[in-house]
Design a protein around this nucleic acid. Structure first.
Lengths: 256, 256
DNA sequence: GAATCGATATAAATATAACAAATTTATTCA
DNA sequence: TGAATAAATTTGTTATATTTATATCGATTC
């Protein structure tokens, strides 16, 4: 299947599947393509055609087709190229892209940070466990490099915080589980929002020690130990966070 | 902040934050509003104005403003109403909405089902644990009702499969953790795609027994037991799935 | 006085047209 | 052969008009 089959959208011809009752033509088009992706009918790399092709195929204006494509692009479902041989193709999955979308939802939903940290705890624990089992020498090398780098940054709280973030992400990478990387990526923005307050040097030193100990577990291939240690690490963060919320001060964050 | 502050987008006036170098005006507008949401500057319920307001405020055409709004709507960030007092408002977070977006990414990324089931295992385990601790009498009642309902459906594999899906979701609900509900919702489509093959009656009966036992743990407020039992439940599914993949047959699924 | 019906204004949804900008392909000339 | 150029295609953007959906206000009716 390399060319999307068009179906008339007007009221006369009922949609075959009609799973969703959409208000607008553009939404119907989006729903139809998403359905195709979720059912496996449409795969990454399939060419949808140019805006004109789509608008003619579905018998809508180019404007409506454009809006549908923008919606799909926002979801990371299609990629659009301009020029000759341009047009819309079904995108390859982007593990990074979806994180922001989920982060927005978390922001708007007022999900308690405590709940997120609880999930973070089990998922990062799993990541540490798998990292201990599957980390390659290159992974270890990278993690060691990040710790050395972090050592230099103890004074610069912003830089240290970012570095810690990368360290945690690197452990997820070392687990060699795409699903874990994706899931943790989606939580990242919630815990470490761009403008959160940063750790003080004293705290930074303790965090650095913790990360060092964690890496030792992974180097020793002690999966159970790595998991437990990581969980404790996150639970500690969670407790501090809880205390901060209780005292109604959001400064003095000890993330990472 | 109830009215979005417009910033000129043309090349002459640089964006203040300019975190993202966006190709199109519509993307710039989207990025700016998302940034506002992530930074807490814009909150749920804030009114962005009508399409015309936005197009004039940002000095773009109404069409471009529309495209930006459609992108934001696709992410579940805004809601658009027509008519008098219509226009775009920042949406309340929708725990349901984001699931599909993540599911699409999982589909397009070819993330191994085994990896997803591993995550499912720890998250559903956590959900069962929290459900055992926090389930209300109403939650229990609902779960019991679902099991009774499922009993009638052992013969109808499709209906039974759907019912099982709802049972698992209901346990997540009973955990009273929005974050868990959201995260599990995002995995749902991956494990139970709409057109997956369904459990045979014999398997369905065994699944039903398992669910009954699980509910007992929850009713007895045995958190640790519920967690372990749920993990085993998912791990069992995972093993069957693994065996099926090995034998290259995707029918005979024993999900739920 | 309250409820219903209708006119009106607002705003999105859609369609069409036109032009600009980008990008690939084909052509031409050195 | 190879580089510059022209042409064709397709998105990006704007403009305008028409249709449809919704709320508000007022008049009519019970």
């Amino acid at each position: 299947m390399s060319q999307l089959q068009a179906r008339k959208l007007s009221s006369g011809t009922p949609l075959v599947g009609r799973l969703r009752q959409t208000a607008t033509n553009a939404d119907a088009l989006v729903a139809q393509i998403l359905e195709g992706i979720l059912s496996g009918e449409i795969k990454s790399g399939d060419f949808l055609g140019s805006e004109r092709d789509i608008s003619e195929g579905f018998e809508v204006s180019r404007n409506t087709a454009r809006e549908a494509l923008r919606s799909l692009a926002a979801l990371g479902a299609v990629e659009v190229k301009v020029g000759v041989k341009g047009g819309a193709t079904i995108a390859a999955g982007d593990v990074e892209a979806i994180g922001e979308a989920l982060a927005v939802q978390y922001c708007l939903s007022d999900v308690p940070t405590d709940e997120v940290l609880e999930i973070q705890s089990v998922l990062e624990g799993l990541a540490a466990e798998r990292a201990a089992e599957h980390a390659t020498p290159q992974d270890i090398e990278r993690l060691e490099g990040l710790l050395e780098e972090a050592e230099e940054l103890v004074g610069d709280s912003t830089a240290f915080s970012n570095s810690s973030l990368v360290f945690h992400a690197a452990i997820a990478d070392a687990s060699h589980s795409q699903a874990l990387v994706m899931q943790l990526r989606s939580l990242r923005y919630v815990i470490w929002p761009p403008n959160s307050t940063k750790a003080q040097p004293k705290v930074a030193k303790r965090v650095l020690e913790t990360h060092r100990a964690l890496l030792e577990f992974i180097k020793n291939k002690d999966a159970a130990g790595a998991q437990e240690f990581m969980r404790d690490h996150i639970e500690h963060i969670r407790n501090v966070q809880r205390k901060n919320v209780k005292n109604k001060r959001s400064e003095d964050a000890t993330y990472c």
